[in-house]
Write a protein that binds this DNA or RNA. Structure first.
Length: 456
RNA sequence: GUGGUUGUAGCUCAGUUGGUUAGAGCGCUAGAUUGUGGUUCUAGAGGUCGCCGGUUCGAGACCGGUCUUCCACCCCA
């Protein structure tokens, strides 16, 4: 049997782990700096918790877990005969793998509402699974790093999240990141204005594709979804928006005069944009984009999407406000807003741009050559002392040929090889070879500690 | 879910209109070098050609199916 792993999953080498950890730690540090506290939820939930929360498309992409035991027991012969999946699926599968972190979080908030202090700020860094077809930057198992606040409808939270995005990407030295921002209320307002409220989802999904399929493409898609020519004509000004964020908002304001919800959206966006102009971003750019829609249908206010033009890849982060996410689990009137970082895509970008510094990968500092039982014991005494000082040191496990041991050190890129044979033992010395320069010197244990204990 | 693409040694890949025993580079193991890695030289090991079926006297090559890789769409981080 040829060993393999499932489609869309990956093994990680130690150097990849080191780099991934660096990203995790950076994000985690910033999350905590902004006052978020960690939680974790199970990797699988009851199907009923997840199903129906991500739209029809989402349901298809949820990994369902087959019941244990005789999972066909509850299925009627009739349903089986007809191969009626909608009937069979819920009977044979009652659990499903986590599809994102937001819905489990909503469940968590409702379930633990009495123990939480609101506004509740949590972050969560865990893998999620999607039964998607893998392609560039798209995996079936990947990590999301989420931070959300529930129990506050303050727009300052939106301001904080944009600032948080900026802080993380600045720390990762990934500059020229674009944070696109929009507000669902504006989209609703536009739909209202052109008389397409009932087709809000189709409308926003089509509009979102503007940069991909162009103006005509968008109009065609809207036509095919049943929007009237009249509506499309009224939409024209949206495509012609230009100028700064505030100028565009100005234009939207005059356009949405007759839509109460639209005006609310403009007002909200203006608040966020204005405050961030005062506060200044470090390296990211905040860009108002009226065409930004994002598929998830629970967003009701601000929506964010983070992209980098340094690499052709989907978004590396996204988020938004949802006024009633916990409502479906029975807790009404709880507004939440949150953002997510796509770790795996950020990794790809940093790798592509060669932004990982070399020292994220921790190599052992010293390998002691094994010359035999007595010498090995002598070496291990020094190794123990080094380890107490936090120096990564080890002994070659067997007294193999010198060439083999040296070769081993070389391949693992170990900085120093320490040689202590009979002669060194008798004089209490150690031969230390620097594998990068090839220099070799004799020293006593004290000097050895100083040499290997130093930075690099 | 739709369309395309890929699969030959551990890795990267050659392999002619179908024709004997399927190759190269790198890597690996050993030796040259019994206390010194990288460089060099020599020798060696390593392949049911993704899998199943079909066409043929004969298939790594052609046909069908299936799995896999990567890419695009849908959708998304």
């Amino acid at each position: 049997m040829k060993p393999s792993i499932p489609k869309g999953t990956r093994d990680f080498s130690s150097s990849e782990i080191a780099k991934r950890r660096f990203i995790f730690e950076t994000i985690q540090e910033v999350f905590e700096c902004y006052g978020f506290e960690p939680i974790e939820t199970p990797s699988f939930e009851n199907s009923s918790t997840l199903m129906g929360k991500y739209g029809e498309e989402g349901d298809r992409l949820i990994f369902k877990i087959l019941n244990s035991g005789n999972y066909l027991q509850k299925v009627t012969d009739e349903a089986l005969e007809k191969k009626d999946l909608n009937q069979i699926s819920p009977k044979i599968s009652e659990k499903a793998l986590r599809y994102d972190l937001t819905v489990p979080f909503a469940r968590y908030v409702v379930q633990h509402q009495n123990e939480l202090v609101f506004p509740f700020k949590r972050y969560q860094i865990q893998p999620v699974w999607r039964a998607d077809r893998p392609q560039k930057g798209r995996f079936r198992e990947f990590y999301q790093c989420d931070a959300d606040v529930v129990g506050s409808d303050s727009l300052w939270q939106e301001v904080e999240f944009v600032s948080l995005y900026d802080a993380v990407f600045s720390k990762l030295r990934l500059d020229d990141v674009v944070i696109r921002i929009n507000n669902r209320k504006i989209l609703t307002g536009i739909a209202e204005l052109i008389g397409a409220e009932d087709k809000l989802i189709d409308f926003t999904v089509a509009l979102d594709k503007l940069d991909k399929i162009g103006r005509e493409g968008v109009l065609n898609e809207m036509r095919s979804k049943g929007l009237s020519e009249e509506a499309l004509t009224e939409l024209e000004p949206v495509f012609d928006l230009t100028g700064t964020n505030l100028e565009q908002l100005q234009a939207m304001e005059s356009m949405l005069q007759d839509s109460e919800i639209g005006m609310k959206g403009v007002e909200e966006l203006r608040f966020v944009v204005e405050k961030l102009e005062e506060l200044k971003l470090d390296s990211a750019r905040l860009e108002l984009d009226i065409t930004l829609a994002r598929g998830l249908n629970y967003y009701t206010g601000a929506i964010f999407e983070v992209q980098t033009d340094k690499m052709k890849l989907g978004s590396i982060g996204g988020g938004g406000r949802y006024d009633d996410l916990t409502g479906i689990f029975g807790l009404k009137g709880m507004s939440g807003v949150g953002i997510s970082f796509g770790l795996d895509r950020i990794y790809m970008v940093l790798e592509e741009l060669d932004l990982f510094s070399e020292d994220v990968v921790k190599k052992p500092k010293a390998l002691f050559v094994n010359f035999g039982e007595k010498e090995a014991l002598y070496a291990l005494k020094a190794i123990q002392a080094l380890r107490r000082d936090g120096v990564r040191a080890e002994l070659y496990p067997s007294s193999a040929k010198m060439k083999k041991q040296m070769n081993y050190a070389d391949k693992r890129e170990i900085h120093f090889v320490v040689l202590a044979g009979e002669e060194e033992m008798n004089t209490g010395k150690f031969g230390v070879k620097n594998m990068r320069t090839g220099d070799q010197q004799n020293c006593n244990q004290e000097e050895l500690m100083r040499l290997l204990g130093s930075k690099d």
